[in-house]
Amino acid sequence: MIGYVTIGVSDMGKAKQFYGDLLGELGGKVLLDMERIAFIGESMAKPMLAVCVPFNGEPNHPGNGNMVAIPAGSKEAVDTFYHKAIELGATCDGEPGQRIPDMFYGAYVRDPDGNKLAFFEFS
């Protein structure tokens, strides 16, 4: 249903490194790099995350209420992705924990440009 989600960044090199390192364990890698925009994922046939410098040349701005949610595969993996993101320069926006009893476990970070990410597991 979703082909890709695009988030604005201020430094393409830094963003590609951050997301390549963070999503590598899920098979994520830079699949297409067109200087201003790069697509990261497992394959062009699966949902991807695109990082880009805004087309209009204006500074990027993380949206209020916008978030990219990444299925981690387990509660333990949520913890691992959260800590890896922090290690790579993200900031905490909600430590790992049970959010909805017996249903949703998640953690939240902001990437180096302030874009919000969630790692989650429905149980």
Score class of each variant (00 low, 15 high):
97 G>C: 01
115 N>F: 03
115 N>A: 08
112 P>S: 01
90 A>G: 02
112 P>T: 03
113 D>P: 10
106 G>I: 03
113 D>N: 13
85 A>Q: 01
111 D>H: 10
109 V>F: 05
110 R>S: 08
90 A>Y: 00
115 N>M: 05
115 N>V: 03
116 K>I: 05
103 M>Q: 13
113 D>E: 06
99 R>I: 07
85 A>R: 05
106 G>P: 13
99 R>F: 14
89 G>R: 00
104 F>C: 08
107 A>G: 15
104 F>L: 13
115 N>E: 02
112 P>L: 01
87 E>F: 03
111 D>A: 09
113 D>H: 12
90 A>Q: 04
91 T>H: 13
86 I>E: 05
108 Y>N: 12
86 I>P: 09
97 G>M: 03
108 Y>P: 14
92 C>L: 14
87 E>W: 05
114 G>F: 02
103 M>V: 11
97 G>S: 03
110 R>Y: 08
85 A>N: 08
111 D>W: 06
99 R>Y: 14
104 F>E: 09
104 F>H: 09
85 A>D: 03
92 C>S: 15
105 Y>N: 02
117 L>T: 07
114 G>D: 00
102 D>W: 09
93 D>I: 09
94 G>T: 09
86 I>C: 11
108 Y>S: 13
111 D>K: 04
104 F>T: 04
94 G>R: 10
90 A>R: 04
97 G>P: 01
95 E>C: 12
109 V>S: 05
113 D>A: 12
110 R>F: 03
97 G>R: 01
111 D>V: 11
88 L>F: 10
89 G>S: 00
116 K>Y: 02
91 T>R: 13
94 G>E: 06
99 R>L: 12
105 Y>A: 09
105 Y>W: 07
107 A>F: 14
108 Y>L: 15
117 L>P: 06
107 A>K: 08
100 I>A: 13
117 L>N: 05
103 M>H: 13
115 N>H: 11
99 R>D: 07
102 D>N: 14
97 G>N: 01
97 G>T: 00
113 D>K: 10
111 D>R: 12
102 D>R: 12
93 D>T: 09
115 N>Q: 04
105 Y>V: 11
105 Y>T: 12
99 R>V: 13
115 N>D: 02
109 V>Q: 05
111 D>S: 11
86 I>S: 04
92 C>M: 14
114 G>E: 00
112 P>A: 00
103 M>Y: 08
91 T>M: 13
95 E>I: 15
102 D>Y: 12
89 G>H: 00
89 G>C: 01
113 D>Y: 12
91 T>W: 10
101 P>S: 05
117 L>F: 14
114 G>V: 00
90 A>C: 02
101 P>C: 03
90 A>N: 00
111 D>L: 08
89 G>Q: 00
